[in-house]
């Protein structure tokens, strides 16, 4: 079973809660915020394997006639072809590795696909007694899309185990990719106007993707912003974590929140497992 943690706004506590939950219920922790993975600081994993994630990008050969059909057909404008000066230019930050350029090319073997590494997938364990899996995607600096990396991580998840998927912020393609794999989605909410605004956007996405959903209110300051959202949208509240300076101070020291707020994390975990129907030892 895959439980995804999303938030819309950044800095609401996705990683804090995801690592706290993984620690509390001995679930596999999967860091899918490949642009900025930081879950490892709170789980202290032992990494045993690191593999490259590769995508295919086009390159022309000496058979290329510079007709430009590939560039015209590219839906992402990733190619420019100049017949006069014989230039085949790939803007690889725009390339989505779909292979259409190769398909539409009228000349045999004029375009070949070569592989390019966009990042790494590190894996290991974070709880030596219980062999709990830790996986993280790490996108290379300068790469623009983590989606191929996330898809590779998803294809290796063990469905029979409980996996906590720690998402990137926002509600764009990488978040869609994470929600797609989820059996249940947890909204990590911050009860501020900004937090609510972005939470509503990602909640629209979760609804459109028809996933069951619950809400954790983090940094709770006694206001009703997210309680009102929960009532209005009929989203169950799994629990709250208070706004407390000491939590932030301990975060800065890489201390897992479950060590400090164990009662709250256990309460949230029980509610979460009740809603998802997952049983664990």
């Amino acid at each position: 079973m895959n439980i995804a943690i999303v938030s819309g706004k950044g800095g609401t506590g996705k990683t804090t809660l995801a690592t706290g939950l993984a620690y509390t219920i001995n679930a596999n922790y999967i860091d899918m915020d490949a642009g900025e993975p930081n879950g490892r600081h709170f789980l202290d994993p032992e990494i045993s394997k690191s593999i490259d994630c590769e995508v295919m990008i086009p390159e022309n050969t000496d058979k290329c006639t510079y007709c430009g059909i590939c560039a015209n057909k590219c839906q992402f404008s990733a190619l420019a072809v100049i017949e006069k000066t014989k230039k085949f230019m790939l803007f690889d930050d725009l390339c989505h590795h779909c292979g259409l350029c190769v398909e539409v090319c009228p000349v045999k073997d004029a375009i070949k696909e070569i592989s390019k590494s966009i990042g790494k997938i590190n894996s290991g364990i974070f709880n030596k007694q219980k062999n709990i899996n830790f996986v993280e995607g790490v996108l290379k600096i300068g790469e623009t899309s983590s989606v191929p990396l996330l898809e590779q991580i998803k294809s290796n998840l063990v469905k029979e185990q409980l996996n906590i998927l720690d998402s990137a912020p926002g509600s764009a393609c990488p978040v869609v990719s994470v929600i797609e794999a989820a059996d249940f989605v947890v909204l990590a909410g911050e009860p501020t106007p900004f937090g609510l605004n972005d939470l509503e956007i990602v909640f629209e996405l979760v609804k459109a993707m028809d996933k069951p959903v619950g809400l954790i209110i983090n940094k709770y300051m006694g206001n009703d912003l997210l309680h009102d959202f929960s009532k209005r949208e009929n989203v169950p509240i799994l629990g709250t974590i208070p706004f407390d300076r000491s939590i932030a101070e301990n975060y800065s020291k890489s201390i897992n929140i479950a060590e400090l707020q164990s009662k709250e994390l256990k309460h949230i975990s029980e509610n979460l497992l009740k809603l998802t129907g997952y049983h664990y030892e």
């Binding site: 430009g68 404008s77 990733a78 420019a80 072809v81 100049i82 006069k84 803007f91 725009l94």
Partner: peptide, 21 residues
């Protein structure tokens, strides 16, 4: 025709100029 594309409009516009010789 590419005015509202999300990405790559500069490449398309430059390619139009190239094709117009």
């Amino acid at each position: 025709e590419y005015i509202n594309d999300a990405h790559g409009v500069g490449i398309k516009a430059a390619s139009i100029a190239v094709n117009e010789n």
